[in-house]
């Protein structure tokens, strides 16, 4: 198998090879069969042995980042439960719990569906990045089918993500029209806190998508494109799953 993807002589001696394009873009970790010209990936330092290792590194970084994020939301949710149960004693020694559940605008259901769909399109884009046939086509110089296919689906994700954020905006607007603001009630504190912090995270995801799209357009290195798309999509999935959980909490947990 490795012999079929050994680059021709002329490609192996091209300079400025930051593992982009010139090397067979599918990572087999075989290192080809060249010796002594730096072609054997196993002789290269860690982190520079090919696309697979860069992706795995990015994923692990993302794992720890999302672990921190998880703790952030766990802290908010702990406070949610405590605040929901808390109250005070009035002048007659009655325990008053001032938590009034916030009626969740039903547009959030639509937003949730949009976000779920966006995760599907994102996953299609992510898988398109790893289609070996397309990768080989690009390496042979037959256009950039990888970028092309992924960019379409990623753009769909971006549109759906923006739709979700717009929908959240509408929900805040609707609540404001009913005079439900952040300060109205402990439960509305949490509605706004949770939706806004999640929206901020999703906005970071949108930025990630835009960067990934830019990478698809401008980056010559397939590995770079794979890293950006893969990491962004995993982040997007986790934010989607987190939203489902937060939404269920707001809808049924109040």
């Amino acid at each position: 198998m490795p012999s079929t993807i050994t680059p021709p002589e002329i490609d192996r001696h091209r300079i400025s090879d930051g593992n982009n394009g010139h090397r067979p873009p599918t990572d087999k970790r075989t290192g080809g069969n060249g010796e002594g010209d730096g072609d054997n990936w196993n002789n290269r330092p860690r982190g520079h042995r090919g696309p697979h290792e860069r992706i795995s590194q990015a994923r692990i970084g993302l794992f720890f980042a999302l672990g921190g994020d998880l703790m952030f939301f766990v802290a908010l949710i702990s406070v949610f439960f405590v605040t929901k149960a808390s109250g005070h004693f009035d002048a007659y020694d009655h325990f008053i719990n001032s938590w009034l559940p916030t009626a969740i605008p039903s547009i959030l259901w639509l937003n949730t569906i949009a976000l779920l769909l966006s995760s599907v399109t994102a996953e299609i884009a992510r898988r398109a990045m790893f289609r070996e046939v397309d990768a080989m086509d690009e390496w042979f110089g037959l256009g950039r089918p990888v970028s092309y296919r992924a960019a379409i689906w990623l753009s769909a994700t971006l549109a759906l993500g923006l739709l979700f954020l717009a929908g959240q905006w509408v929900a805040w607007d609707q609540l404001a029209a009913q005079h439900v603001f952040f300060r109205s009630n402990p439960s509305s504190h949490f509605f706004y806190l949770i939706t806004i912090t999640h929206a901020v995270h999703l906005f970071l995801g949108i930025v990630g998508l835009i960067v990934a799209l830019a990478a698809l357009k401008f980056s010559r290195s397939l590995a770079t494109r794979q890293v950006w798309v893969d990491t962004t999509v995993w982040y997007w999935h986790v934010m989607g799953a987190l939203w489902i959980f937060l939404f269920l909490l707001l809808e049924f947990g109040q």
Binding site: F64, G67, G68, D69, L70, M71, F72, F73, V74, A75, L76, V79, L193, T197
Partner: peptide, 13 residues
């Protein structure tokens, strides 16, 4: 990672 994220949430609140 575990601790500072919770501190950030507390500061936000």
């Amino acid at each position: 990672i575990i601790a500072f994220s919770v501190l950030l949430a507390a500061i936000l609140l």
